[in-house]
Computed example of a mutant assay.
Amino acid sequence: MNRTWGGRAFDAANYTLLAVIGLITVLPFLFVISGSLVSSEELLVKKIVFIPTNISWDAYRFIFATKVIYQSLLNTVLITVVGTFINLLMTTLMAYPLSKKTLRGRSKIMLLVVFTMLFNGGIIPTYLVVKSFSMLDTYWSLWIPSAISAFNLILLRNFFQQLPEGLEESAKIDGCNELRILFSIVLPLSLPAMATFALFYAVGHWNSFFSAVIYINDSNMWPIQVWLRQIVMLSAGGFGDAGALSEVVVPPESIKYSVIVVAALPVLLLYPLLQKHFAKGVLLGSVKG
């Protein structure tokens, strides 16, 4: 097709705008990664480094010189995997009944769900509730209070409402009960939705910091985010079993950047695995013509 001058100019403007937005998005990642690999000498000369001249791994050696970092990584993996499973299970078991028009009082229940999005009890009442159920210093304090996200619940309920009712009616004729219909028919058809919410919940658990600081006093149970905070705070005075680096001066800025890379890398590696389903799941609840 022969494009007009105005159409070509419009495309050029769009490409330029997208390129600028992409550059703005990539530059912070490049700056953080380069800052974690830059040598102390170069960092003293240059305040902003996007491509380091000499790559130095001293900051990462400094972080992983302590044994507790490995334990905290295992703790975080456990918190993320089990927590995401609980989130998906509880959200599904609540969203599926609420998607049924025959459920009595579902509008009132949804009103209570929306109410929690606007108001909450606050930190102190929540802490007292967690303490009264003897969940302090246990991972249940990180899983149970955030078992269901009201926003994700509403989206998943809308997704279930869009499924054809004929599938469930056919399954009931064959003798399936509601749980069998849910786990054998509805969930296999909802893989894009499950993958999307799994990513949201997993990222939330991986980045969870404040709840662990409040409810977990045992340092052996701390997730990676809490320990990385400790590393940043104590980086100037040394941290852990860093005897091998006693003669190496690691800039605190490089340690902070390497901490960011360590915390963000697992999530960045997880996203490509779920990208196929995530692209479909972002249209949850949208109007399709």
Rank of each mutant, 00 (worst) to 15 (best):
R229A: 11
G240A: 12
Q230H: 08
I214K: 02
I224H: 02
I224T: 07
S235K: 10
R229E: 15
V226K: 03
L234K: 15
I216V: 04
W222Y: 12
Q230C: 09
Y215K: 13
A236N: 10
N217E: 04
M221G: 03
G237V: 12
G238L: 02
I224W: 02
P223V: 02
Y215N: 07
D218P: 02
S235R: 10
R229Y: 08
L228D: 11
Q225Y: 08
G240T: 14
S219A: 09
D241L: 14
S235G: 11
G237R: 15
Y215R: 10
M233L: 15
V232W: 04
I231S: 02
D218K: 06
R229W: 06
G243F: 04
G240S: 09
Q225C: 05
W227Q: 12
I214S: 01
L228T: 07
G238Q: 02
D241K: 14
L228G: 11
D241W: 13
V226L: 09
N220G: 07
M233C: 09
Q225I: 07
I224C: 05
M233T: 10
R229C: 05
D241M: 13
S219N: 12
D218M: 04
W222E: 05
A236H: 09
S219T: 12
M221I: 05
N217K: 06
W222G: 01
I231V: 15
I216A: 00
V232S: 12
N217Y: 09
W227K: 14
F239K: 00
P223M: 06
A242Q: 15
L234S: 10
D241S: 14
F239N: 00
G240R: 11
L228E: 08
M233V: 12
V232I: 14
W222T: 05
I216G: 01
D241Q: 15
I214C: 03
W227G: 11
S235W: 03
N217D: 06
I216Y: 00
Q230T: 14
L228P: 03
R229P: 02
G238T: 03
L228K: 07
F239P: 01
